[in-house]
Each structure stands twice: as structure tokens, then as C-alpha cells.
Design a protein around this nucleic acid. Sequence first.
DNA 1: GGCGGTCTGTACCGTTCGGTACAGACTCTG
DNA 2: CAGAGTCTGTACCGAACGGTACAGACCGCC
Lengths: 188, 188
Amino acid sequence: MRRPLTERHEVLPALAEVFREHGFEGASLTRIGQATGLGKGSLYHFFPGGKTEMAAAVLAEIDAWFEAHVFAPLCGVQDPERAVGAMLESIGRYFHSGRRVCLVGLFALGDARGTFARPVRTYFRRWVDALASALVRGGLAPASAADLAEDAVMTIQGAIVLTRALEDPRVFERAGSRVRERLRLKRR
Amino acid sequence: MRRPLTERHEVLPALAEVFREHGFEGASLTRIGQATGLGKGSLYHFFPGGKTEMAAAVLAEIDAWFEAHVFAPLCGVQDPERAVGAMLESIGRYFHSGRRVCLVGLFALGDARGTFARPVRTYFRRWVDALASALVRGGLAPASAADLAEDAVMTIQGAIVLTRALEDPRVFERAGSRVRERLRLKRR
DNA sequence: GGCGGTCTGTACCGTTCGGTACAGACTCTG
DNA sequence: CAGAGTCTGTACCGAACGGTACAGACCGCC
């Protein structure tokens, strides 16, 4: 019936959700097994390195998704102003208006600090740089573009924290319009 | 030598650091015991409710500290502009320029979501409201004061995430100046 | 010095943890 | 259908988990 059967990357979304909901330490193999519908045997077949390898794989897929849907478009040839708007829209959908946690940000806060420091750093640096490059192509000076990009990324991260804390998605929406306004304002 | 011996609140700082470093689920009683120098027996003597009560006590102390050193001054009689500046300075010292995690924000991201939703919500709401009140006393319209206050708090939270991710305290410092500038800019 | 209560280290409870071993059910090839 | 190889559920391991029980160390007090 099914092909060579499940492939490794097919379980990644479910895996990611477990890590998002419970963090690295809180994501037990039992929970992971339930969420993916896989027994430990299958899990260790796909991820011989255990939980660490699972989390690394999830991070890698997240990074790939952002590279394709967020970072690359920012660096692409299309109108930079439109690219920035598209980013904010993608981000809003991806994070479910702040109800969904940013796993990379969560790991940055300490859940599995040392282990994933590198991919975490790379992800955020790439995000800031990509956004800054779009702003530069939009006519901004490199210095203020970098400053503005850094501000935008951290505002989004803070918006996720505050939205979940206050349990009110409008917080995230307001943050989005604020960022949009700031990025547009500085253009001229 | 020592008085009735250790009091409950004397172990709270060490306790808080363990939760900050490992999150709620990652903070095992063994680690807590090592960090506080107390055996399980003593811990359960002070916190009959176990780990949950420990975390609640830590949150309560954090809240009290912010109430005394951040929120109350913002609502006080002193010059609002000076109060805002003092807040940013306190915050910077408290969070070690972003190297230290905000435990309340960490809990908001999911580590112990349901259990501490109430104190988490209260803490952030109080923070935003206190800052907004200072801005209103500074001459701002209530609506834009609320907007600006929300933006400042989320920027600080995002700055902590980004500072730790990039492992560069200057990120936090830059965020501080940006917030300061924004809060001053709108005054006139 | 004895007393009563507060405090604390140790041993232990049942459970769950991350990880391993392995038998057998599957799919494909011939 | 036979065989090789891939996949997967179950049972199991030692360690560590959160939490409890309790004997005794320690204290101010008389």
C-alpha cells in the first residue's frame, strides 16, 4: 500500500510541534512517539543520534523553510518594499499571529543552549542580514539598514513572547503594523 | 551561629537561576539541590508543593522586585522622562545586558505554560500599563502611550532573545538606545 | 543537662527517562 | 515462493525523575 514507508522528513512537522510545545528537555520520547505515531524503534531507525539528532533535523528544516520563503526573497531581485511586506505576511502566517512559538528563539533562551548555539546564531544572523540587504537595495544606508533590520527581527521575537504572555493575537498584529510602518518610514 | 537557619526566601535567587538556565522541565530536583546546597528534605520543608511551588515562589519574588524597582517608580510622582530612563537602566542591569534570560518570558514561551499563565499575564500587563502611565503623565495621549509602551516591552523581550542567539551584548545595548530614542521622540 | 520543635541528609518509593536489542512483519527482487 | 533487506512494535535496560518517610542533628529555652 504505502511506499518504502515513511520517510524521515515526513515526521519532522509533528516532531517540531512537540519541541515547540514542550521545549527540548520537556519533549520526552514517549510524547514524541505519540505525536509522530512511531515507536521508539522507528524513531531510532530514522534518527540514530536520538533526541539531539531529532532536534537538529527540525532546526535544519526550519532553517531551510525560512531560507526558501523568507531569506531568499528578501535578497532576491523583486521590489524590496514588496519583499519586506511579503516577509511580514509570511511570518504572521507561520507563527499563527504569535500563538505559535519560534523554536529557534526558544532554544536561544536556554532550553538546549550549548548544543544548538551554532544553528541558532546562523539562523538569526541570516535573517537580520537578509532583511538589511533588502533595505539597502531600497535605498537605505548600510548602517541604518542593519540597525533597522535588527530592530525588526527582535520586535517580532518579542511580539511572540508578549502575545503568548497576554494571550492576545492582536498584540502580534499591532507589532506587525508597527514594524511595517518603521520600515516604510525610513525609506524616504 | 546562624539564626533559625535558612529562610525560604534565602534560596530563591539560586532557585531562580536554575529555572532560568534549564527551564521548568529541565530543572530537576537534583540540580536544584546542588544549586541551593539543600537536600530534598529541606526543599520540601520550605516548598511542600514541590517544584511547582518553587517556581511560583520565584515568579512571585521576581514580580515583587519589578514592582518595587520598575513598576512603582514608573507610576510614581517623579519626572516621567527620568523614570523611563531609570527603567531602562534597571532593566539593563537586571538582565545583564541580555545575557540573562527573563524567566517570565521563558515561561510564556511554553515551558510551563498552563500552570503559570496567570502570573505571567499579570506581570507583563502590569509592566506595559505602568510604562504607559508614565508616558501619559509625560504628555502623551493614552492611545499612543499604550502603543508605545507595548512596543518598548516587546522590544526588550526580543532583545534578550536576539542577544542570546547572537551571543553579543551590544545587541541589547543598541535595543536600549533605540527604545530610549523612541520614547523621547514621541514626547514632543 | 534535659526538652520540644525546627531543620536536614539519606534511603527509598513507584514512575518515567533516553537508549538498546531483537524478533518478526513487511517490500522488493528473482 | 525463497531470500535479502528494510522497517517497526515490544520488551527491556540502568539511570534519573519527582516525591515521601524518617531518624537524628541542631537550636533556643528552662
